[in-house]
Simulated assay, not measured.
Amino acid sequence: MGNTFCIFVGCIQQSSVGVIERWGRFEKLAEPGLHFFNPFAGECVAGVLSTRISSLDVRVETKTKDNVFVQLLCSIQYRVVKENADDAFYELENPKEQIQAYVFDVVRALVPRMNLDELFEQKGEVAKAVLEELEKVMGEYGYSIEHILMVDIIPDASVRRAMNEINAAQRMQLASVYKGEAEKVLLVKKAEADAEAKYLGGLGVARQRQAITDGLRENILNFSHKVEGTSAKEVMDLIMITQYFDTIKDLGNSSKNTTVFIPHGPGHVRDVSEQIRNGLMEAASAQGKKSC
């Protein structure tokens, strides 16, 4: 229900304040409730003001320090101060236009001092400056500025596209750096693994050869002790011949269809045994030098 009035009685609703005049001159403020008037004494209700918070959205177009045109959407919450309702009623005919004019003035004076990035970071400072100016001005007219919110900052469409492209390029550059670092780590780890594999392979070959040498030495010693009158050379020749014929046998029993041509004869067996013996002697000689 709205405010109800007749010639002698008036009802002011809650969150409202009435302005009472006598013979066209301000007399008093009427609180919410029932009021009696004397029309014969010139009393009447000149108007009623709401003390509820009102909201006004103001869109301001300006440019920044780096010559970027932007639109700022400000939301201003204001209300009539109950004790100064007579000033609000008599001093201002259109408070919304007054508020909008001061918002335009403050924003267009402050934003051109900032770059676009600074504007996004300091939009709260812009809202604070607008609030301080409006509180100082509108307080004289009986209005209280409750809140000012910088709702949105909208750059030109071409600027937004450029900003998105710059951001995308920076992210692609960062992704390339991370990808390069990952590939570098992968190559280093692969090289380390290859070196480790070769090192372990070398150790395996060395141990294999050491085991063969130890086995041959043990066989020669055992055979020499069990069969009297045999020398180490004769035992070595016998072992070489036995291994030679075992190798020929394995090649013949292989299921693969591969033909291998090798020289065959007792002389070749003797050559093989001499080469192995010489190799063992050179290894023993080198081991002795290292011990010295």
Rank of each mutant, 00 (worst) to 15 (best):
E132V: 09
R161P: 10
A169G: 03
E135S: 03
F120E: 11
E118D: 09
G124Q: 06
F120P: 01
E133Q: 14
K184T: 12
R113G: 03
Y141E: 11
A169Y: 05
L186R: 10
E146Q: 09
S176W: 02
A175E: 14
L149H: 08
L134P: 02
I145W: 14
M172N: 12
M138K: 00
R161D: 13
D117Q: 06
E121F: 02
E132K: 13
R161T: 15
V126Q: 04
A169L: 09
N167Q: 15
E183T: 07
M114N: 03
A175C: 09
V137I: 15
A169N: 02
M138L: 08
V126A: 15
L149S: 14
R113S: 10
L134T: 12
M172T: 08
L149G: 11
A182S: 11
G139F: 07
Q173E: 12
R160D: 04
E132M: 08
K128Q: 14
M150R: 07
I154E: 03
V151C: 01
D156K: 11
G124V: 12
Q173C: 04
A157P: 02
Q122N: 09
K184Y: 13
E125G: 12
R171E: 12
E140A: 06
A169I: 07
K128W: 05
V159S: 11
V159N: 12
M114A: 05
L131D: 03
E135L: 03
V151L: 03
E132F: 03
L116P: 06
E132L: 10
V130S: 02
G139Y: 06
V137P: 00
E121A: 09
